[in-house]
């Protein structure tokens, strides 16, 4: 006999989770209460259980979520074996079968999600699952497998799906024996676990829910402060998704010289927009500006974007970095050269 350890199905698995949830008592109190329920429910089973020597503690300890999931799967698999007709099992055989069941489950998921991704979707649907089942059953073969390449083949007529339908119809329903404690109740606990399967609660529609949570803004150091600074004046793009504002931009006044219209990037542009006009002192200056690529060279930029000495207009570099869009700049040159030689720049707002 390759393995001398023989277990009663189902019962032992309960016992293991019991010991394991006792260990987790300090972490989550909900599991303890559900353990009590099962104890009363399966008292008859426990009487049989007393004959069996306890397992070594190393095999029953589960410290991380994947081992916990494995323990749950083992209970489910042992219940299935029990429903098939087995009464006892070797531990190694049960664990092998549990492992295979997990791999099968993950195989379906990986295959379905990759076929969803290959058709430019993030969410999988029934067709992806049927395709994944075909992939996994192709080793053994299934009726109708030779027709898969035909163009008029309908995935919904798949014999694999039909077999599952018959299985559901003909099999006695054996639900899982106990409620599974969710560990999301404790918020501190949830932050600690970054397993990839906990939902994020940002609420933004474009963030997939399986992604881990965003880090706290306050803990981001320098980047956080930049973000905070920016948010005084603007809104993040994802925040403006919910309500569609069609109000104009904010006018940033700086002294009495410049009023630059800064349009927020919106989803739809306003129907009618005014012309932004610059009048700059000399026509030579404008020509030089057009040739030289706009921003003056070697000139001391003032914060308002206007350099009095050079009579040049530049974009405010800080505002550009913030990602907002300067709506329209049309630099108009007037014919009369001799007015406004003191460098006044007139910027019309919309």
């Amino acid at each position: 006999m390759p393995c001398s350890k023989t277990l009663y199905l189902g019962v032992r698995a309960f016992d293991e989770v019991k010991t394991e949830s006792k260990k987790k008592k300090s972490q989550s109190k909900t599991s303890k209460s559900s353990t009590m329920k099962i104890k009363s429910k399966s008292s008859k089973l426990e009487q049989r259980n007393k004959k069996i020597p306890p397992l070594p503690s190393s095999s029953s300890s589960s410290s991380n979520p994947s081992e916990f999931a494995f323990a749950i799967t083992r209970i489910a698999v042992s219940q299935i074996c029990q429903s098939v007709g087995y009464r006892k099992t070797h531990l190694s055989a049960l664990e092998t079968l549990t492992d295979i069941a997990t791999k099968y489950l993950r195989g379906i998921a990986a295959s379905a999600s990759s076929s969803a991704a290959s058709s430019n979707r993030t969410q999988s649907n029934l067709f992806d699952i049927v395709q994944a089942l075909h992939d996994l059953h192709s080793v053994q073969g299934f009726p109708g497998a030779s027709d898969l390449h035909r163009t008029d083949y309908c995935l919904l007529r798949s014999s694999v799906l039909l077999e599952i339908t018959n299985f559901v119809r003909n099999t006695v329903e054996t639900p899982f024996d106990r409620p599974i404690p969710r560990r999301e109740e404790d918020p501190t606990e949830q932050k600690r676990i970054c397993d990839g399967c906990w939902r994020n609660h940002t609420g933004a529609p474009h963030v997939p829910r399986w992604l881990p949570e965003f880090p706290d803004r306050s803990k981001c150091g320098v980047v956080g402060s930049v973000v905070e600074k920016r948010r005084k004046e603007e809104e993040l793009w994802e925040n403006s998704l919910g309500e569609s504002k069609n109000g104009g931009g904010s006018v940033i006044e700086n002294g009495d010289v410049v009023g630059v219209v800064v349009m927020k990037k919106k989803r739809e542009l306003g129907a009618k927009r005014g012309k932004v006009r610059f009048r700059i002192g000399g026509i030579e200056e404008v020509k030089e500006r057009e040739a030289g690529g706009g921003v003056g060279l070697g000139v001391n930029f003032s914060r308002s974007g206007v350099c009095r000495g050079g009579k040049r207009v530049c974009l405010d570099s800080e505002k550009r970095r913030n990602g907002c869009e300067i709506e329209k700049f049309s630099v108009g040159t007037e014919n009369d050269d001799h007015d406004d030689h003191d460098g006044n720049v007139v910027v019309g707002e919309r």
Binding site: A76, A101, L105, A109, F176, I180, G196
Partner: peptide
């Protein structure tokens, strides 16, 4: 028999 939570866990792990 396999509970929904467990399936969701493994499905989410595989994307």
């Amino acid at each position: 028999t396999i509970p929904d939570e467990l399936v969701e866990h493994y499905l989410a792990k595989s994307g």
